[in-house]
Nucleic acid binder design. Structure first.
Lengths: 116, 116
DNA sequence: TAAATATATGAATAACTGTTCATATATTAG
DNA sequence: CTAATATATGAACAGTTATTCATATATTTA
């Protein structure tokens, strides 16, 4: 009949899993965050911005690739609220949107047992 | 000549960004982690497993979708070290690989100002 | 051993994503 | 105003990925 008929605890866990499943919309928002920070080029941008504000050309120097590619990635990072930018003269200075960004990176590194 | 000739601090940041850029391989590993947890179906699996160990059919009930699709996603989660599974009779009981997983989810939610 | 249950997987297709190229916009300098 | 510099963006192509369908494997029960 069911896969844990004799395992009371599993049934409780299964019930809780269903009851506490976040709304589809919230799942999508969280997924979008992780998707945004899951591409190597975008991750490198975040690692660069750990050091502070940088204009686009400096970011290009730090992460490699073309100006166009980096600019496309910056747009994604910005529209997903991971980084923010402010204009200063000819430059747009980018920085991390909030302290959670670095914290998430550090947790991922801890999970991988790598020091970054 | 360069975009921040008169902004000493930006030059320092730019230098640090280059010096402290993680190795390509480490960036790829971190990216793989985030990519793995960036799909709605896989995220739902993680939210379900917050409650404890669950067999595949229970996970399917909690997250929706077909058994096949969930099984494919579980394989990705497992091969990327996000969840682990142990056989108990006919069932494979899945659970989160370590405490970092929940911590990362909670940070993402904090970033989004949503309580999950 | 045969049937039932639980889980996994290969192949194929459809959808998505990153990069490139060309070009556009915005700001400053001359 | 014109040229130079910095940044952004649309379109197209190539590569990747999630889902479905059919089927395979593993375990337990009869």
């Amino acid at each position: 009949m069911n896969c844990c008929a004799h395992e009371e605890e599993h049934c409780v866990v299964a019930r809780l899993a269903k009851e506490n499943m976040p709304a589809e919309e919230d799942v999508a928002r969280v997924a979008a965050i992780f998707k945004t920070i899951s591409e190597p080029c975008r991750l490198k941008i975040l690692f660069a911005l750990r050091q502070g504000e940088l204009c686009v050309l400096r970011i290009v120097e730090a992460v490699g690739g073309t100006q166009s590619a980096v600019s496309h990635q910056l747009r994604l990072l910005r529209s997903n609220g991971i980084v923010k930018g402010r204009r200063e003269g000819q430059n747009i200075l980018y920085s991390l949107a909030d302290e959670h960004v670095v914290a998430v990176l550090e947790l991922a590194c801890a999970h991988l047992h790598c020091k970054i």
